[in-house]
Amino acid sequence: MKTHIKNIKTIFLLGIVLTGLLAFTPANEEHKLSADRGYTIGDVVADFKLKSTTGNMVSMADNRSVKGYIIVFTCNHCPFSKAYESRIMALDKKFASQGYPVLAINPNDPSAYEEDSFENMQTVARAKGYTFAYLQDETQATSKAFGVSRTPSAYVVKKEGDKYTLQYIGGIDDNTQDANAVTKRYVDDAVNNLLAGRPVVNNFTKSVGCAVKWKGV
């Protein structure tokens, strides 16, 4: 009996240690652990064709003059996404003319939140004056391919020939609540490095936001 109790205690303590190790996994290691759920750095990203709020179908290949894209998975209802609206617009204003326009994609099942319906996407795009394409991932296949789990999440892809390779995954910057208190601009830094012909050093950060609402879940 004493041996049985001792074994139970040992298993319990090992569980606590393992949980602690996972809780403090560095960002790059966390990305390795989740790599099987979507694209990882250096992967070739498959093109997609999604419906824009303008009514047009949009794909990455439509714009042949780009150097790459800033792809942001965002939505209407999430307070984190709302907090980043102006910052996403600023990214497009800054980098579209330099060859890295924004493509915004709503990954959510609209039946979970009416605010995320296509009609409401159109309303928001018009009201905010989006200068970038705001796309609906109706089947959620593109979002699953990227491995998106939260909104907003940013992905920077570089065009190489007729392919698009993933260069950055993660948050837009380091302060969700206050744009004026941002000290690290992850997407800015990634695109600036690529424009300068340098590799992206900090190529993975953790996204903070609302969980994606998947169909049938």
Rank of each mutant, 00 (worst) to 15 (best):
K6A: 15
I8F: 09
I11Y: 02
L14Y: 13
V17K: 04
G20N: 06
L21E: 11
L22C: 14
F24A: 10
F24T: 13
A27M: 11
E29Q: 13
E30I: 12
H31C: 09
L33N: 09
S34R: 06
A35S: 15
A35Q: 13
R37A: 15
G38W: 02
Y39G: 07
T40F: 10
G42N: 06
D47H: 12
F48V: 01
K51C: 01
A61H: 15
N63G: 10
R64P: 10
V66F: 01
K67Y: 01
Y69S: 02
Y69M: 08
I71D: 00
C75L: 08
N76A: 00
C78N: 08
P79T: 11
S81Q: 11
Y84G: 00
M89G: 13
M89S: 14
M89Q: 13
K93Y: 00
F95A: 13
Q98S: 11
G99W: 07
G99M: 08
P101L: 11
L103I: 15
N106F: 02
P107I: 05
E114C: 09
E114L: 09
S117E: 06
M121R: 07
T123F: 08
V124Q: 04
A125P: 01
F132P: 04
L135T: 02
Q136S: 14
E138L: 05
T142D: 07
R150H: 12
R150D: 07
P152A: 04
S153V: 11
A154F: 02
Y155P: 00
V157P: 01
G161V: 12
T165M: 06
T165I: 09
G171E: 08
I172H: 10
D173Q: 03
T176H: 09
D178C: 05
D178K: 05
A179S: 13
Y186F: 12
D189N: 13
A190Y: 01
V191H: 03
V191D: 06
L194N: 02
P199R: 03
T205N: 11
K213V: 10
